[in-house]
């Protein structure tokens, strides 16, 4: 396969996401301009200019009208996808680490870092109408986190609860009506970099610095599967059509300069969802992969790396013909 290489960023990619139909690919990086691309031919639709700091997270609603970014400049911004204009701006007390629209996109959540004597906090906001008063609007719910900070977040598909992944490897489920913990588990030992749903939001996969990715049941937080590697996993995604997961990682960015790209193992690794066994690899990046995601049709996937490139891979027929021996 010939990947499309998208070179719109000057610094490392932090998160990439497809919209619901998969025709657009949103990419956020540590330079301050998130980009949006046509996933089919790699054409850049535009960039969202306005942030002053590293963008840590990006999300798009299900109608692809609104896009949300959180950045290190202590703001969380809402953008209009069609024009690229900034429509809403929420100033925060510390940098915004994660953000996500709820399934209906009536609400959105963002979390702030524990920094500058500010605690880590979860904010739930109403995003139905975005006008001039938006930045002064009070959040619907504020949950201060006393322990380890939130490093990744997921809405459940009924907009009733939240799942947060924490720096110490903890996973907590929150009830939104009361703002209380429903459930919490600690299956990871280190920072959870990324969490992603499967297609029907019944399971989610976590990617952790402790060299594993794990599959959990969404309702009970029961550990279902563990995918072991020998390096930190920065991102993991579940194929919407096959029983495959893709893991992206590599050693930490600070150690990259002291290892060769061959030894660094910066390839995307494909595991079987059920048998937890690796069956394929795809090379390409020359830095660790920070974010991977499957196209919603499952026929291609994209990866964004520390090297600042986004690579969009369309699978060959060999991938679809491959049968896992068991």
């Amino acid at each position: 396969m010939k990947p499309l290489i998208l070179q719109g960023h000057e610094r490392s990619i932090t998160q990439i996401k497809y919209n619901r139909e998969g025709d657009l690919l949103f990419s956020a990086s540590k330079d301050n301009k998130p980009n949006v691309w046509y996933s089919l031919n790699g054409e850049r639709l535009g960039s969202f200019n306005g942030h002053q700091g590293a963008i840590w997270c990006i999300d798009v609603d299900w109608t692809t009208t609104k896009c949300m970014t959180g950045a290190g400049d202590n703001t969380c911004k809402i953008w209009d996808c069609e024009t690229g204009k900034e429509t809403g701006n929420i100033p925060t007390a510390s940098s915004v680490r994660t953000c996500m629209f709820s399934y209906s996109a009536n609400m959105a959540v963002y979390t702030t870092d524990k920094a500058m004597k500010q605690p880590c906090e979860i904010f739930i906001i109403d995003v139905r109408t975005i006008d001039d008063s938006f930045s002064r609007q009070e959040p619907i719910l504020r949950i201060p986190i006393s322990g380890s900070r939130v490093s990744s977040i997921l809405w459940d598909n009924l907009d009733e609860s939240l799942i947060t992944g924490h720096e110490n490897g903890e996973i907590i489920q929150w009830d939104l009506k009361t703002g209380k913990k429903i459930n919490s588990i600690k299956e990871h030992d280190q920072l959870i970099n990324d969490m992603q749903w499967n297609k029907d939001c019944t399971m989610f996969i976590t990617a952790s610095k402790d060299h594993t990715a794990k599959l959990f049941d969404a309702e009970t937080l029961m550990l279902l599967k563990t995918y072991k590697t020998e390096r930190p996993v920065n991102s993991a995604a579940i194929s919407p059509i096959a029983e495959h997961v893709v893991l992206g990682g590599g050693q930490e960015a600070m150690e990259v300069t002291t290892t060769s790209s061959r030894a660094g193992k910066f390839d995307s690794r494909f595991f079987h969802l059920v048998f937890e066994e690796e069956f394929a690899r795809v090379k390409g990046h020359f830095g660790p992969i920070n974010s991977v995601c499957f196209h919603p049709d499952g026929k291609s996937y994209a990866s964004g790396g520390e090297d600042g490139f986004v690579r969009v891979h369309s699978f060959d027929s060999s991938y679809f013909e491959y049968n896992f021996d068991y």
């Binding site: 998208l6 719109g8 850049r44 690229g84 690899r281 795809v282 390409g284 690579r311 060999s318």
Partner: peptide, 28 residues
């Protein structure tokens, strides 16, 4: 198109989008 791409012509801009070398999925 908007933002940095506002002045791009229709179709992929070779400055930002390039077709990479062939890579193969290595089956294990």
């Amino acid at each position: 198109k908007f933002g940095e791409s506002a002045n791009d012509k229709p179709g992929p801009n070779p400055a930002t989008t390039i077709v990479g070398e062939d890579v193969y999925m290595q089956f294990i």
